[in-house]
Structures are given as structure tokens and as C-alpha cells.
């Protein structure tokens, strides 16, 4: 599904140029669950942003489902993101002014889906995430775990092929963290590819494969055999 070759990303400020990603090569198969780990500032989030088509690489190739997407214009990236990718963030990134229902409905609006269909899909996903009873609440009225479930609902409501999760349990207590990881695992088992950035060893064990980044380069890659033990 994802094929990254010789990918570089550098940031330029007035005085210095920082190389955030340095010659990264990565493949992610359809249905895979990959955890990206590494110390702060190693380029995890930059890589995730590029995989999520939120940002373009400075050089190198990024193929998504067989198409080169590394140098698309913003509009094209937006079009491709819609429906194909779902995002889960550490800080949930829900819109405070919108209710739970409206937050989840948002990606469907941008897909220009009709109202009835939207309602059906949103309610179905909220039911599934066991948060339907809170559909009229605003994010501020929910606990962290509930907010992240809403965020996951929003990420999956379009049935994306790929979910990108940036430290999804970073702001949660352990109980809620486990719940969220279980949800992601469930989605993965149903066929959704997941790429997750995490600091947490425990969370990384949910993944099939762990990619360790260090100073913008892939330092190690390991396959996870103990995954089942946690479940």
C-alpha cells in the first residue's frame, strides 16, 4: 500500500537547514499495523505527516496504492486524502464548537455525501465505538477516553484504507489507552491498515511491525511476535 524510497525532508529556517528525514525507505503492506517509534525530534511525526499527505517530501519517492503522491499539489493531496485516510491525534483535535455527531460527520460532508447517508454512517460508527449516547455533547463535556473514541469514529467513518495515529494514547490514562488500542487493533483486524507513531512500548506491541527512527533515519525494524499476549 505504501512504498517510500530514498525519502528526504528538510526544514529551512532563516539561518539553518534541518534534515528531518534522511533517506528513508519504508514499505507498508495492505492490512498491516506498523508502529513508528523513536526519541523526540527523530522525525516520527514528519514521516507520519508525509504518509498522511499533509506534507510533501523534499526529495525521494512516495507511492500510495501504486500512485506517486510525493509531489502532488495541495489540492490534489486534499482530494486523495478524502475517504482514503483517517487521522487520530494525541490531542484528539476535535472542533470544540461542534457536537460529537457533527465532528464525526465532518469528513462525510467534505465527501459531499447526502444527509441521510451521513446520519446513518455517523450513528453506525458512534454505536460501534459505544459513544452514540453522547452524540449531542460537545467535546469539552467528554472525558479524554471518550474524546479519543470520537476522534477514532471520525477517522473511520469514511471507511479509509489507512489510519494514521499520532500517539493516540499519549493524553489518556492506561485504562482508556488500552481501550483505544483495542479499538485500533479491531479495525486493523477488519482490514484497515494502521500506521501509528508512539512513544509507548506497550502500545507498540499491538503493532505487527515496529520501525525505529533515529535522527531522521530508520535505525531498526522488528516484527512483533508478542502481540497476541497483550490482547
Amino acid at each position: 500500500m505504501i512504498q517510500i524510497q530514498n525519502l528526504n525532508k528538510s526544514f529551512r529556517t532563516e539561518e539553518v537547514e534541518t534534515l528531518a528525514l534522511n533517506n528513508v525507505n519504508l514499505k507498508v503492506q495492505e492490512g498491516e499495523f506498523v508502529a513508528i517509534m523513536g526519541p523526540s525530534g527523530c522525525g516520527k511525526s514528519t514521516l507520519l505527516n508525509i504518509i498522511g499527505m499533509l506534507d510533501n517530501p523534499t526529495s525521494g519517492s512516495y507511492q500510495f496504492a501504486g500512485h506517486e503522491v510525493g509531489h502532488l499539489k495541495e489540492n490534489q493531496r486534499t482530494q486523495l486524502r478524502k475517504g482514503n485516510l483517517g487521522f487520530v491525534f494525541q490531542s484528539f483535535n476535535l472542533i470544540d464548537e461542534l457536537t460529537v455527531f457533527e465532528n464525526v460527520e465532518l469528513p462525510l460532508i467534505y465527501l459531499k455525501m447526502n444527509k441521510n447517508e451521513r446520519k446513518q454512517k455517523v450513528m453506525a460508527v458512534l454505536e460501534r465505538m459505544k459513544i452514540a449516547h453522547r452524540e449531542k455533547h460537545f467535546p469539552q463535556q467528554l472525558s479524554g477516553g471518550q474524546q479519543q473514541r470520537v476522534a477514532i469514529s471520525r477517522a473511520v467513518v469514511t471507511n479509509p484504507k489507512l489510519i494514521l495515529a499520532d500517539e493516540p494514547t499519549g493524553n489518556l490514562d492506561s485504562k482508556n489507552g488500552i481501550e483505544v488500542m483495542n479499538l485500533l487493533t479491531e479495525l486493523n483486524q477488519e482490514g484497515t491498515t494502521i500506521v501509528m507513531v508512539t512513544h509507548s512500548d506497550r502500545d507498540s506491541h499491538y503493532a505487527h511491525r515496529i520501525v525505529n527512527l533515529f535522527d531522521g533515519q530508520i535505525a531498526t525494524e522488528s516484527h512483533n511476535r508478542a502481540m497476541g499476549a497483550l490482547m
Binding site: G52, L54, E74, N75, T78, R81, K82, G83, F87, N93, L94, I95, L106, P107, Y110, L111, R154
Partner: peptide, 9 residues
């Protein structure tokens, strides 16, 4: 957030 979710400029 809206842009990530697919909103155009």
C-alpha cells in the same frame, strides 16, 4: 483539522 479531514482552501 478541517483541512486534514478534506476541506479545500
Amino acid at each position: 483539522i478541517r483541512k486534514v479531514l478534506g476541506a479545500s482552501i
